[in-house]
Every structure is written in C-alpha cells, then in structure tokens.
C-alpha cells in the first residue's frame, strides 16, 4: 500500500475542503470494506484518505415529507433491520439483509455500497476498468462467467451495488454535495456505463460526497430476489428488484430492475409492460421474466446467467405479490 495522509473531518464542509477536483488525489473512507482492498492492490493510490465516519450529519434514517431519508453512513445492518424501510420499501430491506456475512453488514455503509468499485477480476488484477488490450476488451473471449449479459460492451463488468437495483426500482433520489453546493440525481442516473478506462461508473464527482438517499413514500409492494451460490461471503450471480403499484389484484404499473447482469442496474421496461394490467400468477410472472431477458446478449461462458435473471424476476414478482398492499 502506498503512503497517504489521513484526515478526520467532523463536518461535511470540512470533508469537502479535503477533496480534490480530479480522481486519484483523495479517497473517501467510510466502512472501508472496499477501499482498503483497492489500496492494497494499488488500484487506488490516494494521497489523502478522508475518513467521514465522524460526521454525525451523515447518520440515521428518518421519515420526512419527501419519503424516507437514509444517511450515507447507515450500515447495511441498520438498513436491513429498520422498521420504516421494511414497511415502505421491503425490496431495499431484502437487498441489505441478503448481503452475506454479519461483518460486512455491520461495517459496510449505504454510501459505500453505491460507490464501491466493480468486482470484475480483470479490473481487480490491474487490466483496467474495461480490460482493454490492443483496443479490444479481454472479456468477451475470456473468463466471463460472472460478467454482463446486457449492454453489449465495451463495459462488461457488472455493477456490484446490492442496493442499486432496489433504489432504481423505487425511484429513489441520491443527494451529492460539493463545495459549490448540493445536487440531487435520480438513482437511475447515478449509475453510468463508462465508455473508456478513465471514466467512472457512477455520477459522483471527485470533489463530491454522497450524503443521503431519499426513498419516496407511497403504497407499493416490492421485493428483491437474489441468486447467490454460497450462503456466506459470496457475490450474487443475478438479482431482481421489483416494485408494484396495484389496482386491486391487478398490477397498475411496475418497475423491474435486474442486478449483477450489466454495468449498471438494468431496468427492464419490457418486463414491466408484460406484467402491467395483469394479476400476478406463476404464468404472468414467468412471462415477465422472459420479457426481462429477451434482449440479453450473453458472452461465451455466461448463458446460464440469462436463466438466473429470468428466474430472479419471476420469483421477485411472486414474492412481491404475496405482500399486503
């Protein structure tokens, strides 16, 4: 690990003054479950590490007029156990609870989940975010069993965020602040698909801090279904988060967002359309699952993930349908 200066600001304003306008100067430390690995592998070599864990204003979950405000420092464990979240956004609660290992749930934060770097093994071994060699990505003909089945490149990594698909489906807002002031982006716009090795996969700027998330209020049924091989310490192979606005027993409108299948949470309008106006049954859920993966472009080794994504959508819908309105 490269030497670095360590800063302990107590307010967001102090923290912002310690950041820099370009990437590579400073990194923000919260739970540290990803940043420390990145630094040990020399993938991130910040000159300064800005610890934000002492900033009280970034903590806590509160109901507000806009919905539910979740501070960036809320841990996955707090999020999973919060009664307001369970009641209003079960899909988000499910997603946090499914993160394996109590250690990660207790250390990992909401902000960190959204800002963590991809787990693509080419990226982690130093081949760059897009694993480009001689102008061509190594992934399509390489070891791609865990890679993207949507998007068609050049970014073939999958977004590692556990909360991303649920937040996109719920229509959450993400608040970012820089020395110039705060701004707000929709969760769907927060995740980006980079076109080159030097750009980032999220909308956060290097001089910004993610401060909070706001989940809108509203009577919805929601669920997240995750396919993961191991019970502990493992990444999902595919997930689906669904949000249903019901009219009686019929779906008035839906959002279906898949995770770990593309460089960003993958919103399927086709799946939502397939289920709209219908009651959720094994058949309609299956049809929505099929619609969700109709445009999939699997690589040489990951055709199985198309099945997993389809099944995750089906099972998430069936799970959401069981909930009381």
């Amino acid at each position: 690990m490269q030497s670095f200066a360590y800063a302990n600001p107590a307010t967001v304003q102090e923290a912002l003054a310690l950041l820099a306008p370009t990437w590579g100067e400073a990194d923000v430390l919260a739970g540290g479950t990803d940043l420390l690995s990145l630094m040990k592998e020399h993938l991130h070599t910040p000159k300064r590490v800005v610890n934000i864990k002492n900033i009280k204003e970034l903590e806590g979950i509160q109901k507000t007029a806009d919905g539910i405000r979740i501070g960036a420092l809320v841990t996955m464990d707090e999020l999973a156990k919060n009664a307001d979240i369970k009641a209003a956004a079960k899909s988000l609660s499910d997603a946090a609870a499914a993160i394996p290992s109590p250690q990660i749930r207790h250390m990992g934060t909401v902000g960190g989940d959204l800002c963590q770097r991809p787990r693509c093994w080419y990226y982690r071994q130093g081949f760059g975010l897009l694993a480009m060699k001689d102008g061509k990505s190594l992934v399509p003909d390489g070891a791609n069993q865990y890679h993207a089945i949507f998007g068609g490149g050049p970014a073939y990594f999958v977004s590692p965020s556990s909360l991303g698909p649920a937040l996109v489906a719920l229509g959450a807002k993400i608040k970012l602040v820089s020395a110039k002031g705060p701004r707000e982006v929709a969760a769907a716009s927060f995740f980006l698909v980079p076109q080159n090795d030097t750009s980032r996969e999220i909308a956060l700027h290097p001089d910004e801090i993610l401060t909070e998330i706001v989940v809108p209020a509203g009577a919805v049924r929601s669920s997240t279904y995750e396919v993961r091989q191991k019970e502990a310490l493992d990444w999902p192979l595919a997930t689906a988060s669904v949000v249903l606005h019901m009219r009686g027993n019929v779906v008035a409108s839906a959002k279906v967002v898949m995770g770990h299948v593309a460089a960003k949470p993958w919103d399927s309008a086709d799946a939502a359309k397939a289920i709209a106006g219908k009651a959720i049954t094994a058949e309609t859920a299956e049809a929505a699952g099929k619609a969700a993966v109709a445009g999939a472009q699997p690589l040489s080794q990951n055709a199985y993930k198309v099945t997993l994504a389809r099944v995750a959508v089906k099972r998430a819908l069936l799970e959401a349908a069981k909930q009381k309105a």
Partner: peptide
C-alpha cells in the same frame, strides 16, 4: 479459473476463490 487470454488465474484471492 484460468484465463486463456492472459494465462492468469482469475480467482486467486479469497473473494473469488469460493
């Protein structure tokens, strides 16, 4: 998990070696 293109073992750390 060996990568044909690079000759590397892709899952040598305990995050990917299950």
């Amino acid at each position: 998990i060996m990568d044909d293109a690079t000759g590397r073992m892709m899952n040598s750390d305990m995050e990917f070696y299950k």
